[in-house]
C-alpha cells in the first residue's frame, strides 16, 4: 500500500506548502540580507564611537531639522488643501490630481533639476529673487524645498483619499448642531481621519529623510548647510567608510521605527462612508 504522504492528494498539498515556504523565505531573505549585512559589518563599539563624529552629528541634526520643517509645512498647507480639493469640484481638478502624483514617478534628480531651473540664480523666478538679494539654491531652504516637492505626495494622496471617504453626514450633523466650520473640522473631521493622516505624515517624514537626488541637484552637498544624512553616506563611502556605514545604520533604525509606527497607527479605526 502507498504510504499516506505519497497519496496524490497529500502529495500535492505537501508540494504547495513547500513551494510557498521557499517563495516566502526567498523574498524575506532578499529584503532582509542587505540590511543584516549592513548591521553586522560594524561592531557596536565602532558604531557608538562613530556616532560622536562631527560629520555624523552635523548630518543628523541637519536632516532632522529640514525633515521636521518640511513635514510641518506639508501638514499645515496640505491638510486644508486636501480637504478643499476632495470636497469641491473646480476646473482643472484632474490636472491638479496628476500634479500631486507626479513627484512619485518623477526621478528625484529630475525634480532637483526642475527646481534649479525655476529657483536657481538664473532660473525663471530665481533671477528675480536674486535681484532682491534672496538666494534659494544651495541653501538649507533649498533642502527643505526639495524634500517638500518629493515627499508631499505621500501626505496629500493619503489626506485626499481620507477626506473623500469620510461620510459628509458627520460634518453635516455637527453643523446642524450649531458647530462652526472650524469647530466641525477640529472636533469631527480631523479626529475621524487622524489615524490615516498621521500614517501619511510618517511616510512623508520617511521619504523626506531619505531624499537624495533632488537635494544634491538643487541644494548641493555642503557640510553643515545642505549635507543631509543620505548625502553624508554618499561622501562617507568615498572617504570614510565607517562614517558612511554608521549613518546608514542610523537611517535603517529610523526607517524601521517609522514603518513600525505606521503599522501601529494603521490598526486604529478609520471611519469611512
Amino acid at each position: 500500500m502507498t504510504p499516506k504522504r505519497f497519496r496524490p492528494k497529500n502529495y500535492r498539498r505537501t508540494l504547495t506548502y513547500l513551494a510557498a515556504g521557499i517563495l516566502i523565505a526567498a523574498v524575506t531573505l532578499y529584503l532582509a540580507l542587505p540590511i543584516l549585512a549592513l548591521i553586522i559589518r560594524m561592531s557596536p563599539d565602532m558604531f557608538f564611537d562613530t556616532l560622536h563624529n562631527p560629520e555624523v552629528i552635523s548630518a543628523l541634526w541637519l536632516s532632522l531639522f529640514t525633515t521636521v520643517t518640511s513635514l510641518a509645512v506639508v501638514i499645515l498647507v496640505g491638510t486644508p488643501f486636501a480637504y478643499y480639493h476632495s470636497r469641491y469640484s473646480y476646473p482643472g481638478k484632474v490636472i491638479v490630481d496628476t500634479l500631486i502624483d507626479l513627484p512619485l514617478v518623477l526621478p528625484p534628480a529630475v525634480a532637483g533639476v526642475a527646481l534649479l531651473v525655476l529657483y536657481g540664480r538664473v532660473g525663471l523666478l530665481g533671477r528675480y529673487f536674486n535681484m532682491l538679494g534672496i538666494s534659494l539654491a544651495f541653501t538649507t531652504l533649498a533642502v527643505i524645498m526639495a524634500q517638500i516637492f518629493v515627499a508631499s505626495p505621500f501626505y496629500l494622496r493619503q489626506a485626499k483619499s481620507l477626506f473623500e471617504q469620510l461620510d459628509p453626514a458627520y460634518e453635516q450633523t455637527a453643523r446642524t448642531l450649531g458647530a462652526s466650520s472650524l469647530r466641525t473640522m477640529t472636533l469631527v473631521t480631523l479626529p475621524m481621519t487622524a489615524g490615516g493622516l498621521v500614517s501619511g505624515a510618517v511616510m512623508t517624514f520617511g521619504r523626506a529623510l531619505g531624499e537624495f537626488g533632488a537635494t544634491i541637484m538643487f541644494a548641493g552637498n555642503l557640510p553643515g548647510v545642505t549635507q543631509t544624512m543620505p548625502l553624508a553616506v554618499y561622501v562617507g563611502m568615498e572617504s570614510n567608510v565607517t562614517v558612511g556605514l554608521t549613518i546608514s545604520i542610523l537611517l535603517v533604525i529610523i526607517s524601521f521605527t517609522i514603518m513600525i509606527a505606521v503599522r501601529l497607527i494603521q490598526k486604529r479605526e478609520v471611519y469611512h462612508a
Partner: peptide, 12 residues
C-alpha cells in the same frame, strides 16, 4: 435637530 441617515453618532 436633524438625525441624518446612517451616520447617527460621532463614533470617536
Amino acid at each position: 435637530g436633524y438625525v441624518l441617515q446612517n451616520s447617527a453618532v460621532f463614533p470617536h
